[in-house]
């Protein structure tokens, strides 16, 4: 019996977890992106072994799987923080002061875009537009939209975060 590796959000990759996802999809090229999305939702990122496993199951060269995964901004190749911070840099947010908001978030968390805090509590990314333009400038913190942000609100949001 295969030993099931306990997986947390950013834990160790599990062959059987990827296998379960593969079993739900037809073994064809068009299923590649949905499979990668599910793998990432499960494991928090795309470990190399998982991509190799997907490549083999679909009969697609490993280089192609990596080529697709690296093309799309959504896919990550390293574990992320438990709480994700997405700062919107859409037009309405930009004219509403998004650059200042981003600078403040970076300052508070002590990390740059695409990085995680050393304790893996937070990771920071920017997104093109989350479509809440009336609430600009905004960010999504741990799945919750934070509206009409000011540098002050950002400071309050991340109060107590150890840098």
């Amino acid at each position: 019996m295969a030993v099931e590796i306990a997986a947390t959000g950013s834990g160790a990759p599990s062959e059987s977890q990827v296998g379960a996802i593969l079993a739900k999809h037809p073994a064809e090229r068009s299923a590649l992106i949905p499979i990668l999305q599910e793998v990432q939702a499960k494991l928090g990122y795309l470990p190399e072994e998982a991509m190799c496993q997907v490549a083999e199951a679909l009969g697609v060269p490993e280089a192609n799987v990596y080529g697709v995964a690296s093309f799309y901004a959504q896919f990550r190749f390293a574990p992320i923080g438990r709480k994700q911070v997405h700062v919107c840099r859409g037009t309405a947010c930009h004219v509403g002061g998004a650059p200042k908001i981003l600078a403040e978030v970076k300052e508070r968390l002590g990390i740059g875009e695409g990085e995680s805090t050393p304790d893996r509590e937070y990771s920071l990314e920017t997104v093109a537009c989350i479509g809440c333009c009336a609430l600009a400038p905004c960010a999504v913190v741990d799945g919750k939209v934070e509206a009409k942000l000011t540098p002050k609100k950002v400071r309050e949001l991340f109060q107590g975060v150890q840098r």
Binding site: E28, R29, S30, A31, L32, I33, P34, L36, Q37, G67, V68, F71, Y72, A73, Q74, F75, V127, A128
Partner: peptide, 26 residues
């Protein structure tokens, strides 16, 4: 439903179709 994976260029129709086919959205 096919869920996009974060590429603005996929709004262009031929790139979108490539993405549905499981390819890079070019």
């Amino acid at each position: 439903i096919r869920v996009g994976a974060g590429a603005f260029v996929c709004g262009e129709e031929t790139a979108l179709l490539a993405s549905i086919e499981g390819k890079r959205g070019i």
